[in-house]
């Protein structure tokens, strides 16, 4: 049995406590929520909400200015033939690509998120990571996605993991800070719950499941676990933190089950891009194909959406 850990929010106030997680109940509740059936008009609304909450992502070593520009066009107008389809929330790129993305989405309402801080492992000197964040902000990123220092966290050096997030938050200035816990590496729901509280206490605007670089990423129980952490934190401090699921979300059905989980746990006011994001690349095409199915009554195929 792990003891609960109390964190003192860097924004002030008393310590917040971490609730231990009952893994069996958590998975059972997530599974129950994933049986929710969503049809017709609700389905269309869920698909549109999904699109509005997507951080359309490309994080490849082969990314180029041209690839980022075409990703941005897709982010602004996911379906060129259908103006009723909303834009996505943001594009998510590497710092080196931020300027290209900023130029492409200027004036459209689509934000630019950049991973930074030696993403995806975070295994660089603290000063280097902070400089990386400042660089991405300087290039014009509206949102910064950093990774939790899992090395410090897993070694029990929670103070260091915490202080580095505080430093990252400072380096962000007015940019929003999302902290990636990399749930697949933390080992247990309890550890994820504790890491969530730590990140929120350190000042994260969003907590995010994964980098997308390792398997076992944004599973439904894991998103439920983090949503409950956000609810606990809001209950204790009044501070509202956003949630981003990323990694392995490929189908519209997976996505709307995430909406159900977040809506049922945190309330429907969370179901907007200010407080909920889905980091994904191939998800958008699947959502568009589902919308085509609703429009035409026929099953669509990958030939009828744009190639990424």
């Amino acid at each position: 049995m792990t003891t609960s850990t109390a964190f003192v929010p860097s924004t002030g106030g008393g310590p917040v406590s971490t609730t231990p997680v009952d893994a069996v109940s958590l998975e059972a509740r997530a599974a129950a929520l994933c049986t929710r059936s969503i049809k017709t008009t609700s389905k269309r609304a869920a698909l549109h909400t999904t699109i509005r909450c997507i951080d359309l992502t490309t994080l490849e070593g082969t990314d180029t200015a041209g690839k980022v520009a075409s990703l941005c066009q897709k982010a602004i107008r996911p379906s060129p033939g259908d103006p009723t389809i909303p834009s996505v929330a943001a594009v998510c790129v590497y710092p080196e690509m931020v300027e290209h993305a900023v130029a492409a989405v200027a004036g459209t309402g689509v934000a630019v998120a950049s991973v930074a801080g030696a993403f995806p492992a975070g295994m660089s000197a603290p000063a280097v990571r902070v400089a990386d964040i400042a660089d991405a902000v300087g290039r014009g990123a509206d949102e910064i996605d950093i990774v939790l220092n899992r090395s410090a966290f897993m070694a029990g050096d929670l103070g260091r993991a915490h202080d580095e997030i505080v430093a990252a938050k400072e380096a962000c200035g007015s940019a929003h800070l999302k902290v990636i816990l990399e749930t697949g590496e933390l080992g247990s729901y309890d550890q994820v719950r504790r890491a969530s509280m730590l990140a929120m206490a350190a000042g994260a605007d969003f907590i995010k499941t994964s980098t997308g670089k390792i398997p076992r990423a944004a599973t439904h129980p894991m998103v439920l676990n983090m949503a409950e952490a956000i609810r606990d934190y809001a209950d204790q401090t009044g501070v509202v933190v956003g949630l981003k699921g990323a990694g392995g979300i490929r189908t519209a059905k997976q996505a709307w089950h995430h909406l159900v989980i977040v809506g049922e746990t945190l309330g429907s006011e969370w179901l907007n891009p200010e407080l909920f994001r889905l980091g994904a690349s191939s998800l958008l095409n699947d959502v568009l194909m589902q919308i085509q199915k609703l429009d035409t009554g026929r099953y669509s195929g990958p030939d009828y959406v744009t190639v990424d």
Binding site: Q292, T296, G297, R298, Y299, S300, G301, P302, D303, Y304
Partner: peptide
């Protein structure tokens, strides 16, 4: 009919 309308068949 579903097969005939399916755009990926």
């Amino acid at each position: 009919p579903w097969a005939l309308g399916h755009m990926d068949v």
